[in-house]
Design a protein around this nucleic acid. Structure first.
Length: 506
RNA sequence: GGUGGGUUCGUAUAACGGUUAGUACUCAAGAUUCUCAAUCUUGCAAUAUGGGUUCGAUUCCCGUACCCACUACCA
């Protein structure tokens, strides 16, 4: 039995989007479930779209999510460039592997599976325009290659000259005519495509003398002994080409699984950065600042716990068939199964993401949450004992979705209100409430006594309590009076009454 | 246009060819508490469509519609 090895192979063209994180996660879960390796490979064969910082962002994001990388990245979080016992497949950045690919391209030409093409960009543009004028689409394959400029139509001598002297050449795959390619996908089942509809894909680019994705991908997956390729649905149309490439090389191919896309919450189409900005939710795991200085929100900075983010993502397009929704990463590893991944695209629901965070927040210990909240309290200049903060956290955590909600929920336990919500003032600031409320607060030092006092006099509990709440918190809604008094103390209660009376009058 | 993929409540999803089509989020109502939140209960709400196959179809087959991807010397 071969050791399971899967890879996540992003292109460093920008920040990793949450759909990419999901692909990485599914790869990771699959690997761990089969006691295999999860490999990170950077596919940077497009020198024009390279974005500085993107690679580091990808690695940091996976780390934040808890997705451990077995191969490709060292302990310091750098891509490994040098072969060693631990990293026998290094380097893991395709730009550093450029020397490897050329021979494979030539091997295919020699075997008749590929050919050199010399057509200029301009002449191909012309072909496209001409086809369009006829209402057709230009396709470079069996139907046109015999009248175009390539090693199939030119004499050997001429080819030799062009290969040496011309401004450049590409290698194209010679897509067979009328062959039914039979494929299997772990998620989608059996798929067949007739090769006549496919084109002679460029395998070697003249522009930057690098292989295209198709060649580099197949070569690396083979060299790195990848057993399962789990990738986005956008690759499904190139699966026949990839099958044929494995056949051309005579290599055993890995098994494939194509994941559906993440769709935008409203309307049609796939989730994009714009949707996040428009609807106010992050589409990236962490905050990203582009080289131009433009920033985008991240789940991390927006207060999401990585466990919640991962859990939410895992269930977007997969479910265990049970009613369990909350999973730790370890539980996900156990429960995951690639066959149960949903075929159709999943619309992302920001509300559900928040719900997951809320669930994880309440599972956290008070100690952990207090520690997370402390920096904000310090920044606000709050002077509170750690013990008090701890108790308050325990009191309010069930009301919050994020740690950043804490302050809004409990600020009046730390400082007195200076203004009072007009709506609630109109409702509760009436002499028949304020007089007994004030008297009660003067006579009782705890919430429990207060309750007794009101009850003993058969006064309307709701009205009096809300009146007191208005004085203590500035509004008619919030924590229980008993709790508030417990944390601020009797003296502070009386101080807040003084202020209320001064501001609102009697 | 061509090729491929997809289609169950608003969203995510469940349902050996036989269920009253289940669950979660959202929303609404009620209960509860001094308010709010939380909690509990209840409710709203779906098999895209037309044909087959079958005793019986959400499930299998074909057509249609709609959605998505791909159709670059991008990945």
């Amino acid at each position: 039995m071969k050791r399971t090895r899967v890879r996540f192979a992003p292109s460093p063209t920008g920040p990793l989007h949450m759909g990419g994180v999901r692909t990485a996660l599914y790869n990771y879960l699959y690997a761990k479930q089969h006691n295999g390796d999860f490999i990170l490979r950077i596919e940077d064969t497009d020198s024009h779209r390279f974005v500085p910082g993107a690679e580091k962002y990808i690695i940091d994001s996976l780390r934040w999510c808890g997705i451990g990388i077995d191969e490709g990245v060292d302990e310091q979080g750098n891509m490994v460039s040098v072969k060693s016992e631990k990293y026998p497949h290094a380097p893991y950045r395709q730009s550093e592997r450029r020397a490897i690919y050329r021979q494979y391209a030539e091997q295919l030409v020699a075997a008749g599976w590929a050919y050199y093409a010399f057509d200029s960009a301009e002449s191909l543009d012309k072909e496209r325009a001409a086809a369009e004028a006829r209402g057709e689409t230009f396709i470079y394959n069996w139907s046109t290659r015999e009248r175009l400029c390539n090693s199939l139509t030119l004499s050997e001598e001429e080819c030799a000259i062009r290969l040496k002297e011309s401004t450049g050449w590409t290698v194209r795959f010679k897509m067979p005519q009328d062959r039914v390619v039979k494929m299997d996908d772990l998620i989608r089942g059996h798929i067949e495509v007739n090769s006549s509809t496919l084109d002679d894909k460029v395998l070697w680019k003249r522009a930057d003398e690098l292989p295209t994705y198709h060649l580099a991908n197949i070569v690396d997956d083979h060299l790195m002994e990848i057993t399962e390729v789990i990738r986005g649905e956008e690759w499904l149309p190139s699966l026949p080409l990839h099958y044929l490439l494995y056949e051309a090389f005579g290599w055993e191919r890995p098994r494939f699984a194509h994941l559906s896309l993440l769709l935008k919450p409203v309307g049609n189409g796939k989730l994009s950065k714009r949707d996040g900005d428009k609807l106010g939710f992050p589409v990236f795991p962490m905050k990203w600042t582009s080289p131009e200085g433009e920033t985008s929100h991240g789940y991390r900075e927006d207060g999401y716990f990585p466990e919640a983010f991962i859990n939410m993502l895992a269930l977007l397009g997969w479910n265990p068939g049970t009613e369990q929704e909350l999973f730790s990463l370890e539980e996900l590893v156990k429960a995951f199964s690639i066959e149960k991944v949903i075929k159709s695209g999943a619309k992302f629901n920001p509300e559900k993401a928040k719900w997951f965070n809320k669930e994880y927040l309440r599972m956290k210990s008070d100690e952990e949450l207090a520690a997370l909240w402390m920096p904000e309290l310090k920044e606000k200049g709050v002077d509170a004992s750690p013990q008090k903060v701890l108790e308050i956290v325990g009191l309010i955590k069930e009301r919050a979705t994020f740690v950043s909600d804490f302050w809004n929920i409990a600020w009046y336990l730390f400082e007195a209100p200076v203004e009072y919500a007009p709506k609630d003032v109109a409702k509760f600031w009436k002499p028949e409430n304020t007089e007994p409320a004030l008297q009660a607060c003067r006579e009782c030092s705890t919430g429990e006594e207060l309750e007794e006092w009101i009850r003993g006099r058969e006064l309307p509990m709701g009205k009096i309590m809300n009146c007191i709440r208005l004085v203590l918190s500035g509004s008619g809604s919030g924590l229980g009076i008993c709790e508030i008094i417990k944390y601020i103390g009797h003296e502070e209660v009386l101080k807040r009454w003084e202020n209320a009376l001064a501001v609102l009058g009697r």
